[in-house]
């Protein structure tokens, strides 16, 4: 199935570096499996948002989900 991915800030290097991009994934895939497949270290991962809702890595992805990976951030 198809999902849309966006990496922010320094995490861009784990994605296509093209902003939003589409990716084919197996059905019955969790966010944790996606993170592993993309090679993103958990220690670098701040917020993960799917369709504008904050999700933990146990979330099961669905067709056409829009997944955003934000870095950890300090200070405001």
């Amino acid at each position: 199935m198809k999902i849309t991915i966006r990496f922010y800030g320094p995490l861009d290097k784990y994605g296509s570096q093209l902003g939003l991009y589409q990716q084919e994934i197996k059905s019955d895939f969790t966010l944790a499996q996606l993170v592993e497949q993309l090679g993103v270290p958990y220690s670098s991962l701040g917020l993960v948002v799917v369709n504008s809702v904050k999700r933990d890595v146990g979330y099961r992805l669905e067709e056409n989900d829009e997944v955003k990976f934000f870095p950890i951030i300090a200070g405001g």
Binding site: Y8, G9, P10, L11, D12, P41, S44, P71, I72, A74
Partner: peptide, 11 residues
């Protein structure tokens, strides 16, 4: 110069 701080530079 790590993923935890580099947001300040990229964005």
């Amino acid at each position: 110069l790590t993923d935890t701080n580099l947001w300040a530079n990229t964005d």
